[in-house]
């Protein structure tokens, strides 16, 4: 059970303020999930570089040092594929010019046990346990440039309070999912996905949702179709925000108990669990404000 705040900025002039705006939104949803928090930022030049894959690894202190990872990757990656390893707050970022999957395989060899929380060319995922505002501060959210971002505060229901159990779940390139609610048949869906060869990192019900969408996208669904299919397969209560490299989607289950509110202007579109998270956005007084309808998929593209 959780708080969600997501923001897609259409007006380039506002993009330098993305992190600051997200921070004001996050501040207002802390009460809904004080255990842990996570954020995904898209297209921040200090975190992601065009033409490079970046992996977001959980934790600043891995089993081996950043320098060691860097040295090992030199041997594990193809000739000429330079890599960089940086620590941002509680997150270790590894970048290289090879595809994310290849980079992930190399990192798995270099630092067994390292948990990949995010992957892709355009997204960085930062998550940790503790008070959400402190998690955000440690990662320097304020002042971050970006095109779109999603943040989540978590009150764990049935799985452990860990960084790995925090949202967003990012299980395919540039794909992120956050969830408020609880799936009631996730164990069965997990079993079926495992049978199809999908691997899991956690016991979290939300990871099942993320893996399911990644699986459907791989099967050729577009994002909207994947979410419609999710509604056919996963039972229970959910408000979901899903982001891809260039789009953002919101969907609620047909009973729609968990709250959601959307505000839209020419400059941005924002979604949050409660209005108070939207109250400080520029131009909110003239925004189109509405609650997403149950069972309906809403998508916006950059």
């Amino acid at each position: 059970m959780c708080g969600i705040a997501a923001l897609q900025v259409r007006n380039p002039e506002l993009r330098p303020q993305l992190g600051t705006l997200l921070s004001t939104m996050l501040c207002e949803i802390v009460d809904r999930g004080p255990d842990s928090a996570g954020m995904a930022i898209y297209d921040n030049p200090k975190l992601n570089s065009t033409g490079q894959s970046t992996l977001s690894l959980l934790g600043a202190d891995l089993a081996i040092t950043s320098a060691d990872i860097d040295r090992l990757l030199e041997h594990l990656l193809p000739e000429g594929a330079a890599s960089t390893v940086r620590v941002v707050g509680d997150t270790t970022l590894v970048s290289s010019e090879v595809p994310a999957a290849e980079l992930a395989a190399a990192v798995a060899q270099a630092s067994p046990g390292a948990v990949v929380a995010g992957r892709g060319e355009r997204v960085t995922v930062m998550k940790s346990v503790g008070h959400p505002m402190e998690v955000a501060a440690r990662h320097g959210l304020d002042g971050m440039y970006g095109t779109q971002a999603v943040s989540h505060t978590r009150m764990a229901t049935e799985s452990a309070v860990t960084a790995g159990g925090s949202h967003p779940f990012s299980v395919a390139d540039d794909l992120c999912l956050v969830h408020n609610g609880s799936f009631s048949n996730h164990a069965s869906v997990r079993r079926e996905l495992k049978r199809l060869g999908v691997e899991f990192d956690s016991e979290n019900d939300t990871e099942v949702g993320a893996r399911y969408i990644a699986h459907r996208l791989e099967q050729g669904d577009d994002l909207e179709t994947a979410l419609v299919n999710l509604g056919q397969v996963l039972d229970g209560f959910y408000t979901l925000v899903v982001t891809t490299a260039d789009s953002m989607a919101v969907v609620r289950d047909p009973i729609a108990c968990k709250p959601a509110i959307i505000a839209e202007t020419d400059d941005w579109v924002a979604m949050a669990s409660e209005f108070r998270a939207l109250a400080e956005l520029p131009g909110i007084e003239n925004a189109r404000i509405f609650e997403p309808e149950p069972g309906k998929v809403y998508t916006w593209s950059l």
Binding site: M1, C2, G3, D31, R32, G33, M155, T157, N180, G181, S182, F237, C257, K258, P259, S273
Partner: peptide, 14 residues
């Protein structure tokens, strides 16, 4: 079986 104006612990807090 459910309360009419809240569902789950995050709403219960409110």
């Amino acid at each position: 079986c459910r309360h009419p104006d809240w569902t789950g612990p995050d709403d219960l807090e409110i």
